[in-house]
């Protein structure tokens, strides 16, 4: 890869900003665009299913996990038991064990407090950015935790905004914002493939295929976790770094 491309990549994640807190905040901007529509959709759905504003905001503040929150709403609506909802949440979010474990080799010099803060607010989006930045050598805890904090506040605010907008936006898909989330995953995936080579491409193709197969088979809550395990293993077995 040429020098020019490296410079562009650094620019894309705000590497040039010297102040770590601002640098982290700046990095969050493109991902905000990706997940704020999801947060608003969550708020909208919660309002339509009859949750109170405090329940809606409380779930975002405490649970802080998009897919699980949307799933919990539909399960609550369907009359599922507490144990079923909590169990499904655990299965869906178990992928964070893999994410946290894959970040950990780069955090040898971090304090326990910094590690706990990084992990406690870990999301798919922040993980992807951390993964790219740590690999590029920026392991400043202030930048990473600042990014997490911005995402945390924005996620909760988006849920509340969606709740209050209620039925004002009738067809959000007409504005293209329902594609913001997949577009964000595409952007994040491409920056990972660029730096990690052929094994990463195999990992991605296999992970995607297994995940789709599991969703089709009706095992949606297992799709991401098992797709990640299968993809990483396939990339490990087939590709040489």
């Amino acid at each position: 890869m040429g020098n020019k491309e490296n410079m562009q990549k650094h620019a894309s994640v705000g590497f040039s900003q010297a102040n770590p807190v601002l640098r982290g905040a700046k990095r969050s901007l493109p991902v905000l665009l990706g997940f704020m529509p999801v947060g608003m959709a969550y708020g909208l759905l919660a309002q339509q299913l009859g949750l109170g504003l405090w329940d809606t905001a409380g779930m975002s503040l405490f649970v802080f996990a998009g897919a699980s929150q949307l799933m919990a709403l539909s399960m609550l609506h369907g009359g599922a038991s507490v144990a079923a909802i909590v169990g499904a949440t655990f299965v869906i979010n178990f992928r964070h064990v893999l994410m946290a474990a894959s970040l950990s080799p780069m955090l040898r010099v971090w304090s326990k407090w910094h590690c706990a803060l990084l992990g406690g607010m870990l999301t798919d989006e922040s993980f992807a950015i951390h993964s790219v930045c740590f690999a590029e050598g920026d392991t400043d805890p202030a930048a990473a935790i600042s990014l997490n904090c911005v995402i945390y506040v924005a996620w909760t605010a988006a849920g509340c905004a969606g709740y209050m907008l209620g039925t004002l936006i009738e067809r959000p898909e007409a504005w293209g914002i329902n594609f913001a989330l997949p577009a964000m995953f595409i952007g994040l995936l491409m920056s990972m493939l660029d730096t990690r080579g052929r094994p990463a491409l195999i990992a991605a193709l296999c992970g995607g295929a297994v995940s789709v197969a599991l969703v089709l088979a009706g095992a949606e809550s297992w799709a991401t976790l098992l797709g990640a395990l299968a993809g990483a293993s396939a990339g490990y077995a087939k590709g040489e770094a």
Partner: peptide, 19 residues
């Protein structure tokens, strides 16, 4: 560590493909 470095692209694709 090498296996763990491949978790990130695999997870991104596993989230993206069904979407």
């Amino acid at each position: 560590e090498r296996w763990l470095s491949l978790v990130a692209p695999a997870i991104m694709a596993a989230l993206l493909a069904p979407e």
